[in-house]
Design a protein around this nucleic acid. Structure first.
Lengths: 182, 182
DNA sequence: TACTATGTATAACC
DNA sequence: GGTTATACATAGTA
């Protein structure tokens, strides 16, 4: 248990000596492209920081897996992901493949409630999807190493199969569509 | 501008029903996994909504390209992207493994903006084709191990990219055949 | 960059 | 799902 009400104000109480004009401070802005280049850059930096913070908070609070990928208008890449960007992106692509593999699939198959899976994930998650390593390669013992190798090999094989599968499926679906309306 | 103290405690306004105890309302919370299942779900919904809104605002304000992919702890997928999730993910994957073969067109969109690009990605520019190991894993020395790992990782990234490209292509072709540029 | 006034997101409650 | 009090994010300024 912790004390619920130990709130403190960080830095907002000031002796009213050096007050700025009362009209300053945040104003409501319209959500449209900021034309001023410098202002756009400043806003990008501030809001990107806030966005990443909120993303991380959502992960921590709710055990969600999130990837966020941001390219500034200058083309610079910023990304954050839990457990990793790659992991979530792979899972996303996987889902896309599954969705498209069965276009007539019933919408919800995963709506079961009443599940209370617990405990922290081990640093090295096993299985088909939950594999990630935070520790350096050099720190892995040989068992984990071999396990990781196996995982990569399996993933490679699966991806190769998936590529071939997609090619065939694409052909099939195009044939199907052509046979219909066109 | 709102008046800070224009709400009395129950004399003139609603008698009793709509007045809540003074201590209610938002409290500071610790950013830690919410153990209560229902509360976690509620927080997930609210914060996900807020996160997506902020993501969209950042896009609009600063012309950034953003993808955000969220899996709830129940495995449900939510995503948002500008111009599209697939576009940004593809660009991300492209960036991750731009040293490897890229049989598809790499889009070169350089704005008129010029700035010194200072950061450099220390890509694992690892293996080329031609890794085969017949010897037991245990017999490999660590250098070869690491080299092989790089190779597999790069191959994995490329294959993911390839899958993505195929999905996009297929979607485009299907859209074309259906007569809609969705 | 740092600060502050103010808009906004959201925790607790209905 | 709605409401309210409050914590937090951030637009404008220095």
């Amino acid at each position: 248990m912790q004390t619920p009400c130990n709130k403190e104000e960080g830095s907002s109480m000031q002796p009213s000596s050096s007050r700025r004009p009362k009209g300053t401070g945040r104003k409501k802005i319209e959500i449209k492209r900021i034309e001023n280049k410098f202002g756009r850059k400043v806003t990008f930096s501030k809001r990107r920081k806030g966005l990443f913070k909120k993303t991380e908070e959502l992960c921590r609070l709710t055990d969600a897996e999130i990837a966020i990928i941001v390219f500034s208008n200058k083309g610079r890449l910023f990304s954050y992901g839990y457990p990793s960007v790659e992991h979530v992106v792979n899972r996303f692509l996987d889902e896309q493949c599954d969705d498209q593999s069965d276009p007539f699939s019933p919408e919800e198959v995963l709506e079961e409630e009443e599940e209370e899976e617990e405990e922290e994930e081990p640093l090295v998650g096993g299985g088909e999807e939950g594999y990630w390593f935070e520790e350096s390669i050099d720190d892995l013992d040989s068992d984990k190493f071999e396990e990781y190798l196996c995982y990569l090999e399996c993933l490679r094989k699966n991806l190769v199969l998936r590529v071939e599968e997609l090619i065939m499926r694409r052909t099939t679906e195009i044939d199907f569509l052509e046979g219909f309306g066109n």
